[in-house]
Amino acid sequence: VLIASPALAAEKVRWKLAMTWPSTLTPLASPAPKLAKIVSEMTDGNFEIKVDGAEKHKAALEILDMVKGGQFEMGHSASYYWKGKDITTVFFTSVPFGMTSDEQNAWLWYDDGQKLQEKVYSKFNVYSFPGGNTGVQMGGWFRKEIKSLDDLKGLKMRIPGLAGEVFAKLGVNVTNIAPGEMYTSLDRGTIDALEWVGPGMDIKMGFHKIAPYYYTGWHEPASDMQFLINKEAFDKLPKSYQTVLKTAMQAVAADMLSENFDASAKAWEVMKSEHPNIKVMTFPPEVLKAMKKANDEVMEAYAAQNPEFKEVYDSQQKYMKKAREWSKMSTQYYLETTEAIAK
């Protein structure tokens, strides 16, 4: 008599996943469908995840609520969108003057990072796992050059999040502009500057045609995406599916970092050849120092009122000290020395 052994009696599971991005917005929209494919294939089609882009659920910035509420078992988003719900969530995306993607991954997986992330998100009854990374984001497009701190005073800029708070402290006129009106506003000078992501995504917005100065990054050195999972739904999964899901999440997260690196490298090559007038700029040291100082003040103010924020902040700062030494010895010196002999 043939009786399926319990291990083979595969349980059928069908989940829904909501993304913050429209389905076409690669590479941000890449990890979730890839995850669904891997999970389905690894479970012989028994664990299916249906992925809805923002065009379907129409609630791009409500992913956390929807996963918590069980409308979707999973979500793909970025942690810092929940800054208004819990300020500590910002650390699981990226913070100004924070870690690089190498450092951040090491912190998440081999230090306290992921443990802290789970702790922060436990109050929402969801799990949050790393879900891809954009790498260093660019500092934004400026219509005029920033030569000194004075040039920042009264500058009208669209820049959200902690970076916005830092800039506001330096006298920047931080403005909210709906994404649908960013292009027109920058074009007409309603705003003088804006930050978006990096070449791979910026090129579609066409900002390079209307603002000549492209500043290098300082505020989002390694923006992590996140997978959110409804706690109850995850805990109910068979152990094997949990492992499949976790493994697949790690795989697609690593994949997105490579995908975006590739997209940005290629997009930048195109931009450079088609628009040789784009000027890549770094903020002057005086400005960067002031930004760093303002940032420290912002972070310490939050840490003073919020013990959990302080815990994660301290953990990151402590780890960064160690990790940065090694980053310098390894990556930075390698780049510097090889660049030097290339000249």
């Binding site: 579609k204 917005m205 045609k209």
Partner: peptide
């Protein structure tokens, strides 16, 4: 607004 959304999908600069 329609053109902005299409720009995103077609990967074309909004200005164009």
């Amino acid at each position: 607004v329609v053109l902005i959304v299409l720009g995103d999908i077609f990967q074309l600069p909004v200005g164009d």
